[in-house]
Amino acid sequence: MVAQALKDSGDVSGVLDAPEVMINGIIFTSKWCHICKIYRPPRCRHCYSCDVCVEDLDHHCFFLKKCIGKRNHRFFYTLLFSLTVYFLLMLSFCTIFLVKNPNALFLSTITTFILATISLLASVPLFFFFAFHTYLIADGLTTYEQILRLYKSDKNPFHKGCWRNFTALLFGNQLSRHL
């Protein structure tokens, strides 16, 4: 809301000094977004596809045409989990049908085999994508931080421990404090 008001008005007179935020003993200086005309809090990035700054930006999902960030990361993770389980169940049921009904009609067998193949082709990449995001959440990283290797030599200040990272993602506050 504040970001949109500053973006629309172009008035930056109230924003003179870059605010500093301390997280787990590490001081972050907020960066200025020239497009949105705001100081971005830590982990906030500008998405050039959506043309907006997104808090805790993980990535821009081209399949969903949305940025995955603080407000919708739990729903994205739940979607990955649900789709993975769905396709694995579909593959299991198709396999059970093919094994238990060897004398089924030719059309039923072919249809079931096609469904099983589609389920297998969809579930394998989805499973690895879900596993990758599970790893990122457990380490307290975003996709951008992993790609840029921001915390390889230093301690990740956003890592709260595996259990706390998951509970913060799945049950934490989604509302933005800064934007």
Score class of each variant (00 low, 15 high):
C61S: 01
F93G: 04
V12R: 14
I68P: 01
F28C: 14
T111C: 13
T167F: 13
S108W: 00
Q146H: 13
E20G: 13
F171E: 02
R177L: 14
Y144A: 05
I118F: 13
K66A: 08
K7E: 03
F75C: 03
K70A: 07
I68V: 14
T143K: 07
D154Y: 10
R149S: 05
H178G: 04
R71E: 02
G69A: 03
Q4C: 04
L16Y: 12
D56L: 04
Y77Q: 02
K152R: 14
H178V: 10
S153T: 15
V124L: 07
I110S: 09
E55H: 13
T112W: 01
P42W: 00
P19T: 03
F132G: 01
N103I: 03
L98I: 13
V124Y: 10
Y151F: 07
F93W: 10
A122G: 01
N101G: 00
G14R: 15
H159R: 06
L91W: 11
Y151T: 01
I26L: 05
T167I: 14
S49W: 03
S9K: 05
C33W: 02
G140I: 00
N24L: 04
K155S: 15
L141Y: 04
D139C: 05
H178M: 15
I38R: 06
A168C: 11
G161Y: 08
F81E: 01
T112Y: 00
T84R: 06
L80P: 04
T117H: 14
P125Q: 00
M22C: 12
P19D: 04
P19R: 00
F132I: 05
L80V: 02
R177A: 12
L148D: 15
M90N: 08
N101F: 07
F171R: 11
I137F: 15
V99W: 14
V124E: 05
N101C: 06
C44G: 09
F132T: 06
V52W: 02
G14Y: 05
F130Q: 11
L88Q: 10
I26P: 02
L57T: 03
F130A: 12
N156R: 05
L64Q: 02
V21P: 07
R149K: 15
D8I: 06
S108T: 06
S30T: 06
L150R: 14
F128Y: 11
K65M: 11
L120C: 12
V2Q: 15
C53W: 01
S123F: 11
R71F: 04
N72V: 06
A138G: 08
N24M: 03
A122T: 07
C53F: 05
P42C: 02
C61A: 09
R40S: 12
K155D: 15
L120M: 12
P41A: 11
R43H: 07
H46W: 02
P157L: 11
P102W: 10
C94P: 11
Q146G: 03
K66F: 02
R40Y: 07
D56P: 00
T84P: 04
N72W: 14
F132L: 15
L105Q: 08
L121S: 09
T109E: 02
L169Q: 08
E55D: 06
L16M: 12
F130S: 04
T78N: 10
